[in-house]
Design a protein around this nucleic acid. Structure first.
Lengths: 168, 168
DNA sequence: ACATATAACTTAGTTATCTAAGTATATTGT
DNA sequence: ACAATATACTTAGATAACTAAGTTATATGT
């Protein structure tokens, strides 16, 4: 068991080494992963950013922009811009209903639907490379730990949001 | 032990759930981490992007831009832009030598050096939040597994770079 | 019923990052 | 010595994200 420092797991200096910082490590993983994936998807004129939205829409289309934003983990303005690009590229269409005229529903075009067969395996391939030499159990552990970090950070962010709401 | 699918750990559909994708999880961790950290650093007029460079320079200044880029994990054009901002904000100075007139060495200003005392603990704090409820061993496992993923992806990227060099 | 609040999306403006191509300086092979 | 190559940095242009503030449509409290 490591010694605690002022209530912390490690002293501040420990994190001056980026290799010890989970934030840094996550950034490098994300960028490397993205870049490698994009090598494949760009041959079908799909950027890494667009790919993220397509992946969600392959699971489930006909959802609103807001729902899509949440599931992809992006803020709405990001989604607006991304969807403009996807619409222009002929990957999605947007439909309004009279039921609630604020909402916009997003649908994949047949072309985009077909792309799943080609593009989805590319992600599996990058995953395979990323986890080379790791056991299934190690991969699962990594996923679980990352999810726990995400939950921890989300909880704290929510807490801070509540505090600033009180002030406002 | 999980069944294998066409030589892969999982079938392509498995990754259509973003929560199973290490790329997605890493992105969310990175963004949440960054945002939380920036809440603190912005009160000292340091953005998350700048913070990454400062962290490295606190460890070691007087290095070249190229060395800095490598250690921070950014491409050089990114570093150029970031350093312009840091210079304008009075955090760094750049010096040329006659020894090799291509190189530019980066030095922290006294102000930036002092900031370490205030800003470095903020990172430790976010780390503490991020790893809440995890044992020291779990944290170490997470770091180790992330580093292994990084190594795997770097290896593959290097391999692809070599191949395209041959073609060129 | 109507003022106020909330929800869904958009716009504007900023920052961070990348790739590809260009410039200046140094090193190397013949 | 000098052409070819490599190194260090910069510029140009694109994409991806964000926050803050706006618009329009719906829901709610009195």
């Amino acid at each position: 068991m490591a010694k605690r420092h002022g209530g912390f797991r490690h002293p501040a200096e420990y994190y001056t080494n980026p290799e010890n910082s989970i934030g840094y490590l996550a950034r490098i993983v994300f960028r490397s992963f993205s870049r490698l994936l994009e090598r494949g998807t760009l041959t079908h004129d799909v950027s890494a950013g667009q790919w993220r939205f397509l992946r969600q829409l392959w699971r489930e289309d006909g959802i609103t922009q807001r729902e899509l934003s949440e599931r992809v983990g992006m803020r709405e303005p990001t989604t607006v811009v991304a969807l403009k690009g996807l619409e222009k590229a002929g990957f999605i269409t947007r439909k309004k209903t009279d039921d609630d005229r604020r909402k916009t529903f997003i649908y994949l075009t047949p072309h985009a639907k077909k792309l799943e067969l080609v593009l989805a395996p590319m992600n599996a391939e990058v995953h395979e490379v990323a986890t080379r030499g790791m056991t299934d159990e190690e991969v699962e552990t990594l996923q679980t730990l990352l999810r726990r970090v995400i939950d921890n950070l989300a909880e704290e962010t929510a807490k801070l949001a509540t505090l600033s709401d009180i002030k406002a």
